[in-house]
Design a protein around this nucleic acid. Structure first.
Length: 556
RNA sequence: GCGCCUGUAGUUCAGCUGGAUAGAACAACAGAUUCCGGAUCUGUAGGUCGGGGGUUCGAAUCCCUUCAGGCGUACCA
């Protein structure tokens, strides 16, 4: 399939060559936002007005005349027109658009797929957190965005791996173990004091109960017990795994900071490498990364004065490990509290001689849960905070994912719980899913009327000339551009927006035109529309990790 | 103090590398259905793109400045 925009760019380029004998002028072709300006437009006449030493309108006029002359009508465009400041607008012929319905049905599940990635290996790290408690709503947001991005990258020919980084080394988990032992001790001695900076959540009490079944009241105080540590980590991690799985995300690897970095030589190797490259220095018994050499305000600690490596050093080692595993690119999604970390990590990569473009890091911004128009206060210290699990059980996986995917990751999101739960047209997820269910129902109805698949496949598309039909064709054609990785790589929300638009156009079409009628030929042609729309909706929803139901559940 | 994110309709947000009269959803108001699911559709109204400068054929978009909100600025992770 020839890309329409490229096709038009070629035409314009040729015309410039003929008219001005100038080559190598870059031409950009855009889809117009407004129908009145045709389907595609180019600003070439304005862009190159300086170089050609002529006014935009004058250039445009010449090009337009030339293009019109060379364009045979049945090819691509009905009309080419010059407008006001100097835009040249192309009106694509209906027939050219209508062909898309058959193409979509032929390509099916693969419609929208591309090979721009060319098998390049990409590692996407997201959600990853301390195993110190249940995953929260920001993790859920990261899970939606990260997972969907992976789907989109795969769809565009990249070889994608999903990875979850477990921060199971360091202070935080030690503090959790401390809290756990305190809760455990409290079972037998209610007066036992709980540490101020401990983890207050109820899940710690649940773990303590479980611990009690094993240790049966034996004192665990004044003793750092590997077994308790291990049980604690296991308890948290398996619940996190369950949450993520229920959210429809499958990680290729759960990367343990402790096992795979600290218990190996990777940390010391990384440190050695930084030393060799002249980026470390000693001060106050600690080892520092000389990030000031790369423009940072101050140097950063790699190894604390007590000899323990920092999270920062471990993360450098982790990323070096990713690089050594042969990935062409790494993408990280981090929580809003990590943003100070980004610059430093990138500097460290630079210090190690890794190309800056190899690593992209994005911040997934915070989430405010709204109920009845009011913000829900989250307090991690008090142990009350909205978890991913609660969110999914309250609004469902599909709604949760869609709401997160409607927005760019950088926006501070207000999540409206009431709206997400509502089973009505106000709720965009249901709106899209209903479009899919509705069209499945039409196909089922047609089947009952004994319309065969063969009839649909050989349908006469020339019968399709209604405005709503052409609009659907144009919109379906737009799915390819929407999926194109270049535009879309870090913006799954565009798929969500696209699906919403497509669903709306379909509902409109449905209301204006009856599909299954006594007119067999027209019925077949319209069923082709229905079928292709269904394919595109399903493909889009699949990229978002949201189901495309054949029928909607009854309200009551 | 410094750094990052955000500021667009009553509300929540789109707006791709600058483009033509700044879009959508929800809320508001007015309408549509003998028939494939009304969980639907159509229409109306709603804006000094936080403010002020600059760059150019042309700015919500780029640059400078200023105001407001959030976050970060640990030998925590």
């Amino acid at each position: 399939m020839i890309n329409k925009a490229q096709h038009i760019a070629r035409i314009v380029q040729n015309s410039i060559e003929r008219t001005y004998s100038v080559q190598d002028l870059s031409i950009s072709i855009e889809r117009t936002k407004d129908e009145r300006f045709g389907d595609f437009s180019t600003n070439a006449a304005m862009m190159h007005s300086n170089r050609l030493k002529e006014s935009p309108m004058s250039i445009g006029e010449k090009l337009c005349r030339d293009i019109n002359k060379s364009l045979s009508k049945d090819l691509l465009a009905d009309k080419v027109e010059l407008v006001k400041p100097g835009f040249i607008n192309f009106y694509i012929s209906k027939k050219f658009w209508i062909d898309i319905f058959r193409e979509v049905v032929l390509v099916g599940k693969n419609y929208g797929r591309s090979n721009t990635g060319d098998g390049k290996k990409i590692l996407v790290e997201f959600v990853g957190s301390n195993p110190t408690g249940p995953l929260n709503v920001v993790s859920a947001r990261a899970a939606s965005i990260g997972d969907s991005l992976c789907n989109i990258l795969s769809f565009n020919g990249y070889d994608v791996k999903r990875e979850f980084y477990i921060n199971d080394a360091g202070e935080q988990i030690s503090r959790l173990v401390e809290s756990l032992i305190a809760r455990y001790t409290q079972i037998h001695d209610p007066c036992f004091e709980f540490p101020d900076d401990g983890y207050h959540g109820d899940y710690v009490k649940d773990m303590a109960e479980e611990l009690n079944r094993v240790y049966k009241g034996k004192s665990l105080l004044n003793k750092i017990d590997d077994d308790v540590w291990f049980r604690c980590r296991h308890f948290i991690l398996s619940s996190q795994k369950r949450d993520v799985e229920n959210f429809g995300v499958k990680f290729d690897k759960w990367f343990s900071e402790k096992e795979l970095l600290h218990d190996s030589d990777k940390i010391t190797d990384t440190l050695k490498k930084l030393e060799e490259r002249g980026f470390t220095r000693k001060k106050d018994d600690a080892t520092w990364f000389q990030s000031t050499k790369l423009g940072d305000d101050e140097d950063r600690v790699l190894v604390k004065s007590n000899g323990v490596p920092t999270y920062f050093l471990a993360d450098i080692a982790y990323h070096l490990d990713k690089f050594n595993r042969g990935f062409d690119k790494a993408i990280d999604f981090m929580g809003p509290d990590h943003h100070g970390h980004i610059g430093r990590l990138k500097m460290a990569m630079k210090a190690l001689g890794i190309d800056e473009k190899w690593l992209d890091i994005f911040i997934v911004q915070q989430v405010n849960l709204m109920r009845n128009g009011e913000k829900i206060k989250m307090s991690k210290r008090a142990g009350r905070f909205e978890t991913m699990k609660d969110l999914v059980s309250e609004v469902g996986k599909d709604a949760a994912r869609f709401f997160f995917l409607m927005r760019t990751q950088s926006s501070h999101l207000d999540f409206d719980l009431n709206l997400a739960k509502e089973e009505s047209s106000k709720n965009p997820v249901y709106y899209i899913q209903y479009a899919h269910a509705r069209l499945c129902n039409i196909l089922k109805h047609a089947e009952a009327q004994k319309v065969s698949i063969e009839e649909i496949e050989i349908a006469n598309t020339e019968l399709l000339d209604k405005a709503e039909e052409v609009e659907l064709a144009k919109t379906l054609a737009g799915f390819e551009d929407t999926c194109e990785a270049r535009v879309l790589t870090y913006a799954p929300h565009k798929i969500a927006g696209y699906l919403l638009k497509l669903a709306g156009i379909f509902h409109n079409f449905y209301n204006k035109h009856r599909v299954v009628t006594g007119n067999k030929e027209l019925t077949a042609a319209r069923l082709l529309i229905v079928k292709s729309t269904g394919i595109v909706l399903a493909n889009g929803l699949r990229l978002l990790g949201i189901s495309a139901p054949k029928k909607m559940q009854n309200k009551d």
